[in-house]
Design a protein around this nucleic acid. Structure first.
Ligand SMILES: [Mn+2]
Ligand SMILES: [Mn+2]
Ligand SMILES: [Zn+2]
Ligand SMILES: [Zn+2]
Lengths: 143, 143
DNA sequence: TTCTTATATGAGAATGATTCTCATTTAGGA
DNA sequence: TCCTAAATGAGAATCATTCTCATATAAGAA
């Protein structure tokens, strides 16, 4: 259940595997995301990186997302979050509207949703990605 | 199934019903949203309004959303969309990643999702809102 | 209907996130 | 080691959204 931090060389191989150059900026981003195990904003990421540059970080998270190494998470906050993408673990998020605490949850209804959507809208042929977020109140904010 | 455009006085009463002033800016926003029947950006909205002011429109869509007269839709585009909120019709969206075509679909798995999430994360007590979006390819873009 | 006033509006400036420009550096193959 | 296409970094630019404050207006009171 618990995920371990990948060794630096594994990350480099991951990048090579997708045809991307294994630059220090990219390796560092993946290392930080592996360590924090939480969706983080680009601003946070720049802070957490040993040498974080804003433009480079934005460029790289987009690129890594395009190659499915990271996942962009949209929590309706006006800015994107990013987390490491684990293909084998499709999960979604529940976020506290009071304190922004974010937790994962997994589910098994995506196939149903997809089938239902494609049945209702024959003008769509394929679903390639989905986003499911729940907004609620966590126990500490429930007081 | 088809929804008709509400008469201007009905819209005014709707606003009064929530304790909001029935200003022309607000009535016009609701009228446009009723007419287009599609999630629109604030930029679009400002264009479509007879006298659209940016700041006023932003203020009003937020306010109307807080009072559940409109619904903010998040499609991972870096900016929000808004649509008229019909309490009786909980639906979600499927958007074409190639041409941004947006269609609705409804489903019945939100309860399952919610139960599942709360079971997995006992640190959360309540779910008050959800966002489910599917990203795919529409038939015209499938070529 | 007219008056009063708390609210809303509108024009523009400010802010925050994200993207772009371009000179310089670097990864990785030859 | 060398070469070069690709990546980086610093700053400026852009885009969405919010704020400021002077003016206008909805709606209840008279
Ligand atoms: Mn997650
Ligand atoms: Mn809709
Ligand atoms: Zn909380
Ligand atoms: Zn399309």
């Amino acid at each position: 259940m618990k995920k371990h931090i990948p060794h630096k060389q594994d990350v480099r191989d991951m990048l090579k595997g997708t045809g991307l150059k294994a630059t220090t900026a990219r390796v560092d981003i993946l290392a930080v995301l592996a360590r924090v195990k939480q969706p983080v904003t680009v601003k946070d990421l720049v802070q957490l990186l040993p040498e974080g540059d804003q433009a480079t970080t934005y460029r790289n998270v987009s690129l890594l997302a395009k190659h499915n190494l990271v996942r962009q998470v949209d929590l309706g906050q006006g800015h994107a979050y990013y987390e490491l993408n684990d293909e084998k673990d499709d999960h979604h998020h529940i976020i506290c509207v009071a304190c922004d605490r974010i937790e994962d949850f997994s589910e098994c209804t995506v196939d149903q949703l997809t089938r239902s959507a494609l049945r209702q809208q024959p003008s769509f042929k394929t679903v390639i990605r989905h986003s499911i977020e729940l907004f609620g109140i966590c126990s500490s904010c429930q007081k």
